[in-house]
Design a protein around this nucleic acid. Sequence first.
DNA 1: CGAGTACTTGAACAGTGTCAAGCTTAGTGG
DNA 2: CCACTAAGCTTGACACTGTTCAAGTACTCG
Lengths: 258, 258
Amino acid sequence: MQQKVQKLFADIVDVRYPKPACSACDLRDLWCLPIGLKGPEFLQLDNIINRRKRIKRGEYLYRSGDSFRSLYALRMGFFKTVLSSENGQEYVTGFHMTGELLGLDAICNDSHSCNAIALEDSEICEIPYAALGSLCREIPALQHQFHKIMSREISRDHNLMVLLSSMHADERIAAFLINLSQRFEVRGYSPVQFQLRMTRGEIGSYLGLKLETVSRTLSKFQDEGVISVQNRLLVLNDLPRLKQTVERTRPSGPLCKN
Amino acid sequence: MQQKVQKLFADIVDVRYPKPACSACDLRDLWCLPIGLKGPEFLQLDNIINRRKRIKRGEYLYRSGDSFRSLYALRMGFFKTVLSSENGQEYVTGFHMTGELLGLDAICNDSHSCNAIALEDSEICEIPYAALGSLCREIPALQHQFHKIMSREISRDHNLMVLLSSMHADERIAAFLINLSQRFEVRGYSPVQFQLRMTRGEIGSYLGLKLETVSRTLSKFQDEGVISVQNRLLVLNDLPRLKQTVERTRPSGPLCKN
DNA sequence: CGAGTACTTGAACAGTGTCAAGCTTAGTGG
DNA sequence: CCACTAAGCTTGACACTGTTCAAGTACTCG
């Protein structure tokens, strides 16, 4: 299966593209690795990034069990990560947007523990872990940034655990929509109107709900005028009220915005 | 509040204790930082660890909002970490045993986002983050080990998310008991008989259940002969059957054992 | 020994899940 | 370009798990 994926990669790599350059990347201000780096340090980071890869919708970036060599910066696009059980059931553990880093959970086992699947045509930068480690030893700012990214992932998961263990269906959906909204906003898109890249079933899997409940809750929100849904197109008509829905349970403290 | 905690620390520090030495610590084989280090490297790690602190049951190691300076290696004892909401509700995000590292979620915000509270009299080693960073830049093995620990935390959280989003009460409790069992076993204690350090309410908070449900489920397991409970003392009479209870839903792949 | 906390158990209730049926959309191939 | 198909979505009725509320018991710790 690994070979299959690697073969797949070979097909995907588009050699016409120039080597990606972090220094020229518009993700610098986002949560990607280069935050806080100075001019020459950018070039060093550029040097270790192998090549840009395009992953079409539905394709795998990596699969559970693949040996771990690299992290992947999502240059553009949208991914989901899923854990799958022996009986074939799948559990979505995250949705990932432009600027985020994938594969962090693989370091501890030297192999990937989940599948990363593109939900739209995407582009990623491959960052060999060994080289990143070396560079972190040279550039303290990079090291710290990398630690921050891992730490943020942990914080975010803890917030999600609270959501999963204490919130009702409507609160979960509201929190989910607000989260998406904020993440789109940070990336320069409208925070009140956007296209969902995932199915109701995937949302449900992520939030611990059945797809029917997701559908019903969205319909309910629409009836109340808080949102408008047309298939995957979402309009948040009343963001304050949506936030109010979550406030009942939301934990305090610095929440992760993206 | 921060000052209060620091004052509290001053009281707790027991100067009669010698400086802790990783090289002499019996946690070396566990998941603590020193794994993979060579002789002289141990001493370097020893040098950055400030002092040993004792935290009595019920006391805080750190509070949400405290500024982040150090990570804490749990030298001996048992902690819980909790997120608290504005309305005073608390959500347990983890239970932590000897050898584990606390405070990883604070790196991203430069301040702690949860409270760490001792559930029994404990001892911790304080590891200043800045110094650890420096040392990681000198010792690749330490750097990698640190990354692995953070990565493991992420993996573990993902597994917990699957539990929270898909398992029934009895499956959650069974998974929880098995997890405790494995963690005790790794630490040289009996995997089939141990003392719970937390209340039913805390278990419930962690697993997304009400304390009544936890109590009922434990009673049910006892009626079935799978376990015996007397207050906080637990005996796992039929570990295989307990595992069978979880198998229905458990995701495949390399699960984190501790 | 007493007070407060933790725990157990019961009964009624509410929120989601389950099952089922029908509808809509997107994608495919003629 | 249209028809067809499969996948995704919506909605209803009902079942069931876990919560809520309540009462009583058993520990634990000063």
